[in-house]
C-alpha cells in the first residue's frame, strides 16, 4: 500500500510559476466578478433614484408598493436591523482578540531580548552568541506588517459603522410590519391617468428585461467561479524542455482560453444593461410628465426612493460585516501561527541561554 509522499513535490521554479499563475487567475476572476457586481449596484442605484419599480406599482397612492413590501420582507427575513446591530457590536471584540495575540507575541521577543542584552552587558565578549535583536528582525518586520493590517481593518470597521449610522433610521422603517410601514409613508393622490397608458407598459417591459440581464450575471458569476485548471504539468514540461518557464505568456494564454468566452458574455451583458438603462431613463421622463406632480406626490416619492436605497444599504452593510468577521477570524489563525513561531524561537533561545550560563559558570 505504498503512497508516494513526494508525489506533489515539484521543482522550485514550477512551484513559483504555479503560485504566480494562481494570482493571475484570481485577478482575472475578481475583475470579472467585480465588474458584474458593480454593474448591479449601478443598476439598483439608478432604479432607486427613479423610484422604480415602486412608481409603477403605486397606483393607489396609499398602499405600500409591492416591490417595497418585498424588500421589507427580505430584510426582516435576514434578521432586520438587530442582526446587523449585533454583528457590528462584535467587531471590536474580534479586533481586540487579534491585537492581544500580536502584542503577546511581540512582548515575548522583547522580554527575551532584554534578558539577552542584560547578560551580554554582564559577560561582555564571553556572551558570544548572536544578539536577539538581530535574530528577531524578520519576525518583528512580520509583526509590523500585521500592525499595519490591523490599522487598515480599524479604518474598515469605521466605514461600516458610518454606513450603518447613515442608514439605520430608514432601514429600521423598512423593517417595520406592513401596517406601520404604510402609515409612515405619506399618502398622495393617485395618478389616474397612469393606468393603461403606453409608457407604463413600455417601462414594465424594460424593467423585466433588466431583471433578465441581472439574472444572467448571476449565472455568469457561477460559471466564472467554477472554472478550474492546473498548469503544473505544462510548467513541468516547459522546464524540462526549455530549462525555463515563461510563466506570464503561458498563463495569459491559458486564461484567454478559459475565460475568453466568459469575458465576451460579460461585456455583452454590461453593454445591454447600459442600453436598457438609457432607454429606461427616456421612458421615465415621459412617465413623470404624465403623472400629476404635486407636493404630496413628491414627498411620497422621496420616501419610497429612500426605502429602496435602505434595502441596498442593508445588503451592502451585511456583506461588509460578513467580510470583516471572516477577515478577523482568518487573521486569528494566521496570528496564532505567528505566535507559535515567536514562542518556538524564544524557547530555543532560553535553552541556549541556560546552557551558555552553565558553561560560563563552570569555566
Amino acid at each position: 500500500k505504498f503512497t508516494d509522499l513526494f508525489e506533489k513535490m515539484v521543482p522550485m521554479a514550477v512551484q513559483q510559476s504555479v503560485s504566480a499563475a494562481n494570482s493571475r487567475k484570481a485577478e482575472t476572476v475578481n475583475r470579472l466578478i467585480g465588474s458584474m457586481r458593480e454593474a448591479t449596484n449601478l443598476c439598483n442605484g439608478v432604479l432607486a433614484s427613479l423610484n422604480l419599480p415602486a412608481a409603477l406599482e403605486d397606483l393607489s397612492g396609499d398602499a405600500v408598493p409591492q416591490s417595497i413590501l418585498e424588500k421589507s420582507r427580505a430584510l426582516i427575513q435576514q434578521g432586520g436591523l438587530q442582526s446587523i446591530e449585533q454583528l457590528i457590536k462584535d467587531l471590536p471584540e474580534l479586533l481586540q482578540r487579534n491585537r492581544e495575540i500580536l502584542d503577546e507575541s511581540l512582548k515575548m521577543l522583547d522580554d527575551e531580548e532584554a534578558t539577552d542584552n542584560e547578560l551580554r552587558g554582564k559577560f561582555n565578549q564571553r556572551w558570544n552568541r548572536t544578539p536577539s535583536g538581530d535574530l528577531y528582525k524578520p519576525l518583528r518586520a512580520e509583526g509590523n506588517n500585521f500592525r499595519n493590517i490591523l490599522d487598515k481593518a480599524v479604518q474598515a470597521d469605521q466605514v461600516v459603522r458610518e454606513r450603518y449610522t447613515a442608514h439605520c433610521e430608514m432601514i429600521a422603517l423598512l423593517c417595520k410590519p406592513e401596517n406601520e410601514l404604510s402609515a409612515a409613508i405619506p399618502s398622495a393622490n393617485p395618478a389616474k391617468t397612469l393606468q393603461g397608458s403606453e409608457v407604463v407598459n413600455v417601462l414594465r417591459s424594460q424593467l423585466a428585461q433588466l431583471d433578465e440581464v441581472k439574472r444572467e450575471r448571476e449565472v455568469l458569476e457561477g460559471e466564472v467561479k467554477s472554472v478550474t485548471f492546473d498548469l503544473t504539468a505544462k510548467f513541468l514540461t516547459a522546464l524540462a524542455q526549455d530549462g525555463a518557464i515563461n510563466e506570464e505568456v503561458m498563463t495569459s494564454s491559458e486564461l484567454d482560453a478559459r475565460y475568453g468566452s466568459h469575458n465576451q458574455r460579460v461585456q455583452q451583458n454590461l453593454r445591454r444593461q447600459e442600453e436598457l438603462l438609457s432607454q429606461i431613463q427616456v421612458s421615465h421622463q415621459e412617465f413623470s410628465a404624465l403623472k400629476q406632480s404635486n407636493s404630496e406626490a413628491n414627498t411620497r416619492e422621496d420616501v419610497l426612493k429612500k426605502l429602496a436605497s435602505a434595502h441596498d444599504s442593508y445588503i451592502e452593510i451585511s456583506s461588509n460585516i460578513k467580510e470583516g468577521t471572516k477577515f478577523y477570524n482568518d487573521l486569528t489563525e494566521i496570528l496564532l501561527k505567528f505566535q507559535n513561531k515567536c514562542s518556538d524561537i524564544v524557547f530555543a533561545r532560553k535553552t541556549e541561554r541556560d546552557e551558555l550560563l552553565k558553561e560560563l559558570q563552570q569555566s
Binding site: 481593518a153 474598515a156 470583516g324 477577515f327
Partner: peptide
C-alpha cells in the same frame, strides 16, 4: 472589498 487581503499571508513562504 473593504478589508485588507490576507491571501499573501495564508501561505507560509518561509522554507526552513
Amino acid at each position: 472589498s473593504l478589508y485588507p487581503s490576507l491571501e499573501d499571508l495564508k501561505v507560509d513562504k518561509v522554507i526552513r
